[in-house]
Design a protein around this nucleic acid. Structure first.
Lengths: 329, 329
DNA sequence: TTTTAGCACTCATTCAAGGAGAGTGCTAAC
DNA sequence: GTTAGCACTCTCCTTGAATGAGTGCTAAAA
């Protein structure tokens, strides 16, 4: 298993005997390997090649044999140094985390923005030139969405400010699902003073509610170019094309990493056909009951699972720690 | 020239005679081509192959022979349909524009965010959990930057609001370079009432000033995978790696497309060695004196210049038109 | 019963040789 | 100025043989 993971070449009986010297001869190893193949743990690309692990073999390895490999001290140092909230911009921190993870494993990484039932923290209407206003929506996850909307002539910055404060008073702390008709009605009566901007206000609420909540950052996707299994440019094209689609990645993360702790998905275990040559090691970290994130490493089936699992664990723990500094406990 | 652009194969004398039938024989064409080669407009990969254009040949072609190819009616329709400010988010519109451009040309596209001396339109401090505030900065270009900052205990949302309005009153309409010491001093006196938040206010100004102003969106970078000149995975890796670096792209755009109108940079004309197998067709659109953007198409030297120039021209005119709706004249 | 040595066999890879095909340059004729 | 003819060049493809890594199976040894 480990020899194949390192070399990407089928492993023969003589190689094992010579390289690892268990004190048994190639012939014995051949017999054992023939047994393992019959049991479905190994495969032969063609009759006179060595063996490679089957997906069942990988599964057995990650479930029973593998021991997550603790990253070295310098690596830990590097990780801690990169997951700092220097920039004070949560998206950037998560993206940075993905990058360092990808750099240390040399596989692609995926990272969701903080997700869960995210509440509104602030809604602001800012004046923006004649006939326009900029809607700013800040979510509890630290994400910010913005959009331009047209406003009728005659609306002053002061009006915008008033509307903002009404919206904030009514909506702050609520999640999208919490918003009920009664609240909208309250806002309506509150703003009836501003007869002429009422329609605008409701359009705005609509906008503020319509933000897309989850994003997926990716990093190091190009690292799969250096994996020998992806020398074929055409395959590469479909694969890279997929990995640039945020929707696709989002589905991948949500459907394959529900549990806490490290979880591993191998090749054909994916529901999606196009990525059946890949494996994913993922983990989720929970900041509050309502807020969590997912980190994942995506690489070829022949992935260095032990190392990836170890690094991923350490990275996700550090990220969680850093984010808790922002969001409190 | 056009045959090579379409087929990516060296063009021989017989091919020309047979395919285009000028009424002259291959032998005549051979003589002419030999002359053109001597003059430096054609090259021969090896003695018994056809000719391919040299970079000097491309240069002559785009300068004297080529006529920008007007896009077809359905294509124009498609372009107009995609460059709509539906989403009312300027970054998204620019990105969309890049995507449709890339789709129509099947090359990679680059697009800067709106750049120039961008003034502050709005600065907002929003409360964000205990001990934190979210700084929101809206620029005249429609870009929004955000960042979390720590605030001392005891600062109320009301305080934040007051600071915001002072900052807005003083800074709105100014560009980064306009901000002088006198203004900072004014803010200082204005906020002296808020003794205890003074430091915070200045830290905030610092943050608000430190936004990175220019971004580069890219789209369709993977389309270069389907170009036959990039079958080699290793080259591909360095190239794609470069094209993911925003700084690099930014430099590329600013140094190679200063002029108005379509400008074309071919192969070795780039200052940067790594992309000497590429060409770039670029144009800039100017919204106001202070605000402009750059659109570019990046492809192999063997690029369909006439078509790209035509599509790019139409797309950039449409984008400009659409953006003027937002920013007025 | 387990392990090992030996042997015939299989298959991918590499290399050289040779032919096909596309294209050229040059020369002489039109 | 244009064209036909011819010898020549170079890439590409196919073919065949050699190489080498690895296998399965059998019989002998431990």
């Amino acid at each position: 298993m480990e020899d194949f993971i390192n070399t990407a070449e089928p492993v023969g009986s003589r190689t094992i005997a010579r390289r690892y010297g268990f004190g048994i001869s190639p012939a014995t190893i051949r017999n054992e390997m023939a047994d393992l193949e019959e049991m479905g743990y190994l495969e032969q690309p063609h009759t006179s090649a060595g063996r490679i692990p089957s997906e069942r073999g990988y599964r057995y390895y990650v479930d029973h044999l593998m021991e997550p490999e603790e990253p070295g001290e310098e690596e830990k140092e590097l990780i801690r140094k990169h997951i700092k909230l220097k920039s004070r911009e949560i998206g950037t921190v998560i993206q940075q985390t993905g990058l360092i993870l990808s750099q240390l494993t040399s596989y692609a990484t995926l990272a969701t923005s903080l997700c869960g039932r995210s509440a509104y923290r602030h809604i602001q209407l800012a004046p923006f030139g004649p006939g326009q206003a900029m809607v700013l929506v800040v979510l509890a996850s630290g994400e910010v969405f913005h959009r331009l909307i047209p406003v009728p002539e005659g609306i002053t910055p002061y009006d915008l400010e008033s509307i903002s404060s009404v919206l904030n008073a009514k909506l702050r702390g609520l999640t999208v699902k919490d918003i009920k008709f009664t609240i909208l009605k309250e806002i309506y009566t509150e703003l009836s003073y501003y007869r002429r901007v009422l329609d605008l206000a409701f359009e705005l609420i609509q906008e503020a509610l319509n933000v897309k909540e989850e994003r997926v950052y990716h990093g190091g996707i190009l690292s799969i170019l250096s994996q020998p299994e992806f020398k074929n440019v055409e395959r590469l094209q479909t694969l890279l094309g997929l990995l640039e689609q945020e929707d696709f990645l989002c589905g991948l993360l949500t459907s394959n990493s529900a549990q806490e702790g490290i979880s591993i998905c191998i090749g054909r275990e994916f529901k999606n056909k196009e990525i059946r040559e890949l494996s994913m090691v993922s983990t989720s970290y929970r900041i509050t009951n309502d807020m969590y994130g997912v980190l994942a490493v995506l690489g070829p089936t022949r992935m260095h699972y032990a190392r990836v699992a170890g690094v991923l664990k350490y990275v996700s723990e550090n990220l969680l720690e850093e984010l808790i500094k922002v969001f409190g406990k």
